[in-house]
Simulated assay, not measured.
Amino acid sequence: MTITQLQYVLAVAEHKNFTLAAEKCFVTQPTLSMQIQKVEDELGIQIFDRTKKPIQLTDIGQKIVNQAKNIVNEADRIMDIVDQQKGFIGGEFRLGIIPTVMPTLLPMFLNNFIKKYPKVNLVIEELNTEEIIQRLNNGHLDAAIAATPLNEEKIKEIVLYFEPFVAYIPENHKSFPKNEIEIDDLDLNEILLLQDGHCFRDGILNLCKNQNVNEKTQFQIESGSFETLIKLADEGLGTTLLPYLHTLDLKEKDKLKLRHFKEPKPAREVSIIYPKNELKIQIIDALRNTIAGVVKGAIVFQNVEIISPLQKK
């Protein structure tokens, strides 16, 4: 059997459909089906149960797919070793970034990176943490930038920076006169939250873990935009929490409504994460060094308490 045949097997296992798998592999469906049939004939077993809709792996097929992932990854590793030996930093690199980091961090480092490493073709996607983990494990991302720790067995994490939570408190709020606030000053029932699926939302819920939510409030809103939450807070509909980097671009009149927490400041840990097979590690290192160079002047907080980004079960 060949590496290409194993790639076809992995594509069908992922998409559970021969036609879609063929499209993703840029071959015709009959060609893909024939090559997978050759593998099954050579092994004398069935990898897929074609009677099921969608197509399912057989028990032995699942074991073969697990091994095929290792083989294909190791095959990719050969060229990676050669690139590292030559000191080559280039080629396609697929990077995922969570939505609450993308708008602030990406403009800070992207221009520097592409100028310094013109041979790298960065393919960047905005994805939530769950999507990032899935794509890293499936080999569809080379690395990602996300809030950590994630405690994923197959994923490595290198911390880039610690980013404090900052409260946005309108002038009519009881905590507005305070120069600094504490966690006890927060009321989860009046905090405007990002919609479900954002790890920053889960961080806020973990920060306020000892509070109960009153389900009889006049309205409930969850948004994917910090800008929307800020505008609602300005209308006297509550308060919100923002990542520190997001506060740097606020208008001066809005910055007057920001309140930092007393030390140790609650913060999120932002890391570059990647599979433990360390493919394209030279590009990962180049990204990490570029980002470290631009954020060290923007974020100088050290006395922080890391709030978990994981949703409490």
Rank of each mutant, 00 (worst) to 15 (best):
L43A: 13
A143S: 02
F113E: 00
P170W: 02
I181M: 02
L188I: 15
C208L: 01
D196W: 09
N289K: 11
P266Q: 06
N138H: 13
R259F: 01
L310Q: 09
H246N: 09
L10K: 07
L6N: 04
I169H: 02
V101W: 09
G293H: 08
K174D: 15
A22M: 03
E130Y: 11
N121L: 05
I114R: 03
I169W: 08
E171N: 09
P243M: 01
I89S: 01
L241P: 05
P107C: 13
F93G: 06
V9H: 01
P309I: 12
L205A: 11
I183F: 05
T239M: 15
K257Y: 00
Q37I: 00
A68Y: 01
E215L: 06
P164S: 02
I114V: 11
Q85H: 15
L20Y: 06
N172R: 06
K52R: 10
D234E: 14
P118F: 05
E180S: 14
Q7C: 13
K116M: 09
F226R: 02
K296S: 03
A68S: 09
L241R: 04
A144M: 01
V82M: 03
P149K: 02
T100Q: 15
G139L: 07
V82H: 11
E171Q: 11
D184V: 14
S271V: 13
G87I: 14
K251H: 06
Q311S: 07
L127M: 06
P309S: 11
L245D: 04
Q311T: 14
K156G: 10
I60F: 14
K209P: 08
K53W: 04
I299T: 11
L279T: 15
Q35W: 04
I64W: 07
I71K: 10
I299D: 06
G61P: 05
E40I: 14
D234M: 01
K178C: 01
L43Y: 10
Y117S: 08
R135D: 15
G96M: 01
G90K: 01
A286W: 05
V65H: 06
A298N: 12
E305Q: 12
N303Y: 02
D59V: 12
E131T: 15
Q37F: 00
G293A: 09
E125V: 08
K276F: 04
Q211P: 00
V27G: 03
K119A: 08
D254I: 04
H140S: 12
F261S: 08
L20A: 14
I272M: 11
I45Y: 08
T148G: 05
G238M: 13
E222G: 00
L20N: 11
D249R: 00
V72S: 12
E222K: 00
E131P: 12
F226N: 05
K312H: 03
P107H: 10
T217W: 03
K265C: 14
P266Y: 10
T228I: 08
I291D: 06
Q56L: 04
G297C: 15
E215V: 06
L105N: 08
I132Y: 10
I191A: 03
I191K: 03
P264S: 02
Q7M: 12
V120W: 02
K119S: 06
S33K: 04
I55C: 09
L188A: 15
A13G: 12
L122I: 11
S175Q: 12
F48N: 01
N112K: 12
H15R: 14
F93S: 03
K257Q: 02
A298H: 10
D249Y: 06
L141I: 09
I230G: 08
V304L: 05
I183Q: 14
E182S: 13
T31H: 11
N206V: 00
I45C: 10
L310M: 08
L193D: 13
